[in-house]
């Protein structure tokens, strides 16, 4: 169970939110001009990092606004939430492919 800070409503239980995958994906400005591989990459290719992940959430049972979450996929620790349009916060918490785990992830296999 996670507590997630909605940028508007404040800290709420995870069950009020819905998850919507990777954030900051840009639609090609001229879809007709990109080839199939580029279009396919835009539609389907997603990062699956072990570590920090920028992702979209929506406060479905609350204010129904979308926002971004910077979460560590190893231990579910949430480093920041921020509004759409805001730039991702610069978090120095181990965007390092799992090397800098701190105390939160004792069970991380090598």
């Amino acid at each position: 169970m996670l507590l997630i800070k909605c940028p508007w409503c404040g800290t709420r239980d995870m069950s009020e939110f819905s998850y919507h995958g990777e954030a900051h994906l840009l639609r090609p400005p001229a879809p007709a001009e990109v080839d199939d591989a580029q279009w396919g990459a835009y539609l389907f290719a997603r990062k699956n990092p072990k570590g920090l992940h920028r992702e979209r959430w929506m406060h479905a049972h609350g204010c129904r606004r979308w926002f971004n979450v910077l979460r560590d996929t190893r231990d579910d620790r949430i480093y920041a939430t921020y509004r759409p349009g805001d730039s991702p916060p610069d978090v120095d918490a181990g965007d390092d492919n799992g090397e800098n785990n701190g105390d939160n992830n004792p069970g991380n296999p090598t």
Binding site: C9, R12, S15, E16, H61, G62, C63
Partner: peptide
């Protein structure tokens, strides 16, 4: 006031 859920209802 707050919006939340009660069971599965908003």
């Amino acid at each position: 006031c707050a919006q939340s859920r009660f069971g599965n209802a908003s």
